[in-house]
Design a protein around this nucleic acid. Sequence first.
RNA 1: GACCCCUUCGUCUAUCGGUUAGGACACCUGGUUUUCAUCCAGGAAAGAGGAGUUCGAUUCUCCUAGGGGUCGCCA
Length: 465
Amino acid sequence: MAEIITRFAPSPTGNLHIGSARTALINFITKSKNINSKLYLRIEDTDKERSTEEFKDNILSSLKWLCIDWDNEPQIQSQNINRHCEIANKLLTDNKAYKCICSENELNERREKINSGKITSKKICVSCENNKEVQSLKKDYVIRIKIPIDGNEILEDIIQGSVEVDNSEIDDYVLIRKNGTPTYMLSVVVDDHDLGVNFIIRGDDHLNNYFRQKFIYEYMNWKVPNYAHIPLIHGEDGSKLSKRHGAVNLMDLKAQGYLPDAIINNLILLGWSPKNQDDEIIQLDNIISKFDIKDLSKSASIFSYKKLDYFNNYYLRQEKNLGLFIDYCQSNLHLQKYIMQDKEKIIRIFNTYKKDISKYEEMIKIAEIYFNINFEISKNEQFQEDFNNYFNDFFKLINKIKKWEYEIINLEIKDFLKKNNIKFPILGKPIRYLLTNDYNGPSITDIFMILGKKQSLERLNKYKI
RNA sequence: GACCCCUUCGUCUAUCGGUUAGGACACCUGGUUUUCAUCCAGGAAAGAGGAGUUCGAUUCUCCUAGGGGUCGCCA
């Protein structure tokens, strides 16, 4: 693929969300295919009311956590306001824009007529453009771009194909607000141009914006970039992914114990799949070499937590990712206590249980069983006579073991079962219950190993026939 | 409502006019197992509907239906 200059341009009005993360990811992958390509990060903070420093930091750290890297320092859009205004004034003097003083009420009335079909033109302001008095005002006006009434525009989108919209569908949108600040529509175009962006990858909720923004490029005689409008991600119910579908912020997913590899693997498979591959496990380096944005599907896809869980389980089980679990423990209030108390023990618990969990968070409850010094079984039930007959002998046997090693314990248990000619469940299930408060779970040898001899005997000792 | 986009198993997808429509997750069954699980093997499960074009349509065209996006002095 040729050299591209692309960008990811979130507004710091919320935490980084799975949908935006996917856009960032696709930008990153696309730029990573060519060593000379660039990805810039621009914080679009022109809405000062809703933008915060916290959200900005959240976005930056979420991207870093996902291993999405960008070139140069992040750009802060609000620092370029003068430049944006300069362009707006240029458009004004070139007669490509005009001042407008319509009140909110006037605009609303007009808008209502347009939307109800009473007026076919999308022109929102009809009185200001040719009003000399308005055009010579020095303050208290907005600047609107002039969109021709006739003609149409065709976008050759990398993903959407060719899309045609009549100019009559486009309104004279605002470039400069009444308070003198530039709007998103102006700022994006100016900043993208100034950065040399030649390839824009963004959500297809922006598709319609192409037909507006295009005019600024045209009026300024700037080269129009290529566009790839990627389909949005939906929740299980088919609507745009949002909070009510579950955790959608990257940092929330991190806190639950999801891994970047799993999230990336899951996200990239929405709308794309690697060729000639039966399984769906694929990591960033491999994605970068196989992915081509042209292959991305045009239709929206549903984000599934079940599939994310599958990928996460796969990655957290990898031996090489054990370090990530340790990092997680150190950042988690509950697990922190345990790892400080006995690191080896928490690792042993994790290795025993990792096939059963889909995210690290689930380890909290499990670790609690083994670290609780006041452990009690929930009901002191009496087991079958069969079990009671053997319990004391079994207790003595365990007590007798000197070398507390997996193979030794395992052999002793097998031997005991054989000698007494009993099936495992009769002995094993109640034993597991006494040790973990659960009839099901890991092999009792594993449980003995986790608890250690002293604690194992303590727990067994509480049982009175 | 107007404009734009989308439509293959429940979900994510493969198929670039001729296939027993393939895979993955989830689900079900069986096997291994020291219970539960893991693991292994197998199974059920799809071209929204209707017209055309064609010797032949999931694939190309049109219509209908359904879904989504946009319609701000937000981005």
